[in-house]
Design a protein around this nucleic acid. Structure first.
Length: 109
DNA sequence: CCGTTGACGCCAT
DNA sequence: TATGGCGCCAACG
């Protein structure tokens, strides 16, 4: 098996459309393990080996860029998001509600 | 085998 | 609104 969970996480993240973001918790909930949001974060940490995974589009439930320090540079995540039209204000997504993409509402629709 | 840590989230105070 | 505690699960020493 080897963590189908991780595989599913990567799959969902890859489905996030440009200009949109989601949260670790939303992904966890979509996969049926709402209490394992931390594991989603761990999965992302191990996703560095795959360039096709837009990890910058995944933030915490407050729209805070908690994973910015794991990127190449301190501003990388922030810049990538801004490139897609997402407003970042002090490590936080200002228009979070507008750019939020919930797999529960978008994929199961 | 056990204790700690962590890109999280919910609840109580 | 801000803080702290707890649960959850995988990885590491």
């Amino acid at each position: 098996m080897r963590s189908d969970f991780f595989k599913n996480v990567y799959d969902v993240v890859r489905l996030i459309p440009p200009g949109k973001v989601t949260s670790y918790g939303a992904i966890a909930r979509y996969l049926g393990t709402s209490k394992s949001a931390r594991v989603v974060g761990w999965a992302m940490n191990n996703s560095h080996h795959d360039q096709s995974i837009p990890a910058h589009r995944v933030v915490n439930r407050n729209g805070l860029l908690t994973g910015k320090h794991h990127f190449h540079g301190e501003e990388t995540m922030e810049n990538l998001l801004k490139e897609e039209g997402i407003l970042v204000k002090k490590d936080r997504i200002d228009n979070f509600k507008e750019v939020f993409w919930d797999p529960l509402n978008e994929l199961e629709l």
